[in-house]
Design a protein around this nucleic acid. Structure first.
Lengths: 164, 164
DNA sequence: GAAGATTGATCACTCAATCTTA
DNA sequence: TAAGATTGAGTGATCAATCTTC
């Protein structure tokens, strides 16, 4: 319990609340963070029965020379935890889009390999997804603004990565 | 079935793929969309056992003169589907942060009401959350850049809303 | 012991169906 | 019939073990 005596000022400072302008801006940014992923998810789900993450897993594999990648590489590329990726790959495997093989070079590792069916599915899904990204983002802004948005995004990402 | 005759060129055009610069920018933006919400979720979960959405539900109620709102208003404010909100409010009610009452003016409606315990919990959670938003976003950019980011966000949001 | 990967339990979200009141 | 809200079923994500190989 605290003593009844007076004590020096509490070391916990008043938090630096957002100003009205800052709050205004943050609301817009937060709204974007909520809506843009949702809009892309819905498009992919409707047109290709794929989640956003599933699409990028298939796309990441398709970009590799042998259409395969280690699970942990793939997890880093799509920015997902290994556990989540493992569940996801299992479901893609059940649909015939991916298969798994033990990496002979390091038998702890698993290689995820894009099948022909998975590649065909990706090829079919890509145009409408790219169109949507264009519609919602790329064509909504000028090329200079796109560059600016990229720059600002990278600055914030740098903060997030520095805040571990 | 298609006839064996020759036909005019297929009306489906080649999709407008992203240029290298556009792809580069989109990757940075997509990374931000993935990481920033996650970073904020983790902070709130760790420090206040609240999801991002739960926090904003409590905050939205706290801003009302009577600390209450109709479910459908609240859903619109936090940009969530009514079904999701209903499940979420049930959980907050079980924790004692919110209670529900039928709206006497329109007995189809439910009013979600912030309890004293919910208010206290929000007040305790707010400083560290605001600090994190500051650290990651507001203080990472200049005031002009914040304005720019708000503007660009609103332009993309406009596209999303126009694309129904 | 650490790295790579998987598994199972739990919890939240989505979607469709349902119910009540306007 | 439509608006407001809730519910239950199914699916996906998270977190803490666990297992194997280095």
């Amino acid at each position: 319990m605290a003593t009844p005596q007076r004590r020096p000022p509490d070391p916990v400072p008043e938090p630096r609340w957002l100003t009205a302008d800052e709050l205004d801006a943050w609301r817009a940014i937060a709204k974007l963070l909520g809506r843009l992923p949702t809009a892309l998810e819905r498009q992919l789900q409707r047109d290709a029965q794929l989640s956003y993450l599933e699409y990028h897993v298939l796309a990441g594999l398709a970009d590799q020379p042998n259409r395969s990648m280690r699970m942990c590489q793939l997890a880093a590329m799509v920015d997902a935890e290994l556990s989540r990726l493992s569940h996801l790959i299992r479901r893609l495997e059940q649909r015939g889009f991916v298969r798994r093989e033990v990496d002979p070079a390091d038998r702890r590792s698993t290689q995820a390999i894009l099948t022909d069916a998975g590649h065909a599915h990706l090829i079919a899904a890509a145009p409408s997804h790219v169109d949507r990204v264009r519609d919602l983002v790329i064509d909504a802004l000028t090329p200079e603004e796109i560059l600016t948005l990229k720059d600002l995004s990278n600055r914030v990402i740098g903060r997030i990565e520095g805040a571990d």
